[in-house]
């Protein structure tokens, strides 16, 4: 295998990764997964006999569902839709970074007000990822809606 072959192989794979998206039918699958996870999480709030592994599993299932929606194509995925999608990812990334900086202080402030001795600045991966995926999906939806008018 020559250096040129390696370069070509690398270029081909990079292109494949860059263009990777799921078919539009997976959007409904993702919405279904997310809704099922949210409903189950809400139901578990009212039950006491919840196994310890179920809660994190459902949270991951919700994240996976949102990710599937996020990477599913539109019915017609043309260059304009691709541009709107990349705008929404950019916004999600920027706001996600701001969220990571600001949210622990907000949590700390609120906890300090409510229960002054146990205030912490904890933040989980779930909070950050859900926030970023929500922002991406909302921005993309809003930008797409704006085109209809």
């Amino acid at each position: 295998m020559t250096l040129k072959d390696i370069y070509e192989w690398d270029k081909r794979n990079l292109e494949r990764i860059k263009k990777f998206q799921l078919a539009s039918r997976y959007k409904k699958v993702g919405i279904g997964m997310s809704c099922a996870a949210v409903i189950t999480l809400i139901t578990l709030k009212f039950t006491n006999s919840e196994p310890s592994w179920l809660h994190p599993l459902l949270k991951n299932f919700l994240l996976l569902g949102m990710l599937v929606v996020s990477i599913s194509k539109e019915e017609i995925e043309d260059e304009y839709i691709v541009m709107l999608r990349s705008q929404s990812y950019r916004m999600a990334f920027l706001l996600g970074v701001v969220y990571v900086f600001v949210q622990p202080y907000v949590t700390y402030g609120v906890e300090l007000l409510l229960k002054s001795e146990e205030a912490s600045m904890d933040m989980t991966y779930f909070q950050v990822l859900v926030f970023m995926l929500l922002i991406q999906l909302l921005f993309f939806h809003v930008l797409l809606k704006k085109c209809h008018t």
Partner: peptide, 17 residues
């Protein structure tokens, strides 16, 4: 082979194709 939104956005000068 594009979406109707794309044509609408070009016509309203929101998008340069």
């Amino acid at each position: 082979g594009v979406s109707r939104q794309t044509i609408n956005s070009i016509e309203t000068n929101r998008y340069v194709p």
